[in-house]
């Protein structure tokens, strides 16, 4: 009897031990069939042998080894459950993340939408640059600074609003709601009118479409269109004539221009001959002298006895007219 109890005791202990070891081994993928996937990183961020590998958030394996390929490239070798052979594709992306904010490192395998063949044993999957906490904090710091300055400005704005008497007087104005209400009523009326107007316009447009009214007839009458066309043709022919006329004028002008330029004709001699100008000047001088002589002659004639009586009578008449006035 004692031996039975002892046997039960020992077996219970061994069972617990084996269970413990089995559970741990299962978590490390030591039992069952697995396959190997690899990925390469610049920086593995403290990833260690035994860290979990997740596919879409499910634990599918563990990290078997992290090896150094060269000074800038590390290779992570992962043991993946065989069941995942039908799930993971060759183009899946591998990244290193942290489990929670301060937890262990984990390897995340995530699917890509494009089609690709399934991953085989020993394949090297593409890696995504890991999320760097330092970089994140740096960026967060920048954001914080920005938010700080925004808050500063906001504070200033609020202070100004608080100190602004005008705004507060507007807000405190008792009649404001009433006015606003009235405005709203006005707006409503205006919109009602606008609606009426739009209705009228609609009706007019309808009429026009139907061919009613003068615009309607303009738009819908085909004979009118013909007439219009004819008028346009006529206008065009008039334009053509005007065009030819202007061409003729242009020809005439250019003929004159040509004459002037080539030294033929009167106009040319008037405009371009410098001798003529001197002659003309002389003639005008002669005329001046002639008229001066004539004036002297006439003055002399006035004082001649034959004409003196006539001039005296003329003066007397002038004086008489002034006296009458």
């Amino acid at each position: 009897m004692n031996n039975v109890k002892l046997g039960a005791f020992v077996l219970a202990g061994l069972f617990c031990l084996i269970l413990l070891l089995y559970m741990i081994g299962k978590n490390r993928n030591m039992f069952g069939s697995n396959f190997i996937l690899k990925s390469r990183f610049e920086n593995v961020q403290g990833l260690k042998q035994g860290n979990n590998v997740r596919y879409a958030g499910i634990d599918v394996g563990t990290v078997k080894k992290v090896t150094i390929i060269n000074d800038t490239l590390m290779e992570v070798i992962m043991i993946i459950d065989n069941k995942m052979k039908t799930v993971i594709h060759k183009n899946a992306l591998v990244s290193i993340a942290t489990d929670g904010l301060v937890g262990n490192k984990v390897v995340n395998i995530s699917a890509v939408k494009q089609l690709a063949p399934l991953a085989q044993n020993g394949d090297i999957l593409a890696s995504k640059r890991p999320l760097d906490t330092d970089e994140m904090l740096k960026k967060l710091n920048n954001t914080n600074n920005d938010i700080g300055s925004v808050a500063e400005e906001l504070k200033y704005t609020i202070q100004r609003i608080n100190n602004s008497n005008a705004l507060w007087s507007v807000l405190n104005e008792k009649g404001l709601p009433q006015n606003l209400k009235l405005s709203a009523i006005n707006i409503r009326q205006a919109t009602a009118r606008a609606k009426d107007m739009a209705n009228d316009l609609y009706a007019i447009v309808n009429d026009v479409k139907m061919g009613k009214g003068s615009i309607g007839s303009i738009l819908t009458d085909t004979s009118f269109a013909y007439n219009l066309n004819e008028a346009v043709v006529k206008i065009k022919s008039v334009g053509d004539e005007a065009d030819s006329l202007s061409r003729q004028i242009s020809d005439a002008v250019s003929g004159i221009q040509r004459d002037v330029d080539s030294g033929k004709g009167t106009i040319h001699s008037l405009l371009k001959d410098s001798l003529l100008v001197i002659k003309l000047n002389k003639s005008l001088d002669n005329i001046q002298q002639g008229t001066d002589g004539f004036n002297q002659n006439m003055e002399a004639l006035k004082h001649n006895f034959l004409f003196r009586g006539y001039f005296r009578r003329l003066e007397k008449q002038k004086i008489g007219i002034k006296k009458d006035q």
Binding site: L20, G25, G50
Partner: peptide
């Protein structure tokens, strides 16, 4: 509870202690 316990145990926790 047991999943969490076993997840955080490794052979190098158990064997030296054993």
């Amino acid at each position: 509870f047991w999943t969490q316990v076993f997840d955080n145990l490794a052979f190098y926790d158990v064997l030296p202690a054993f």
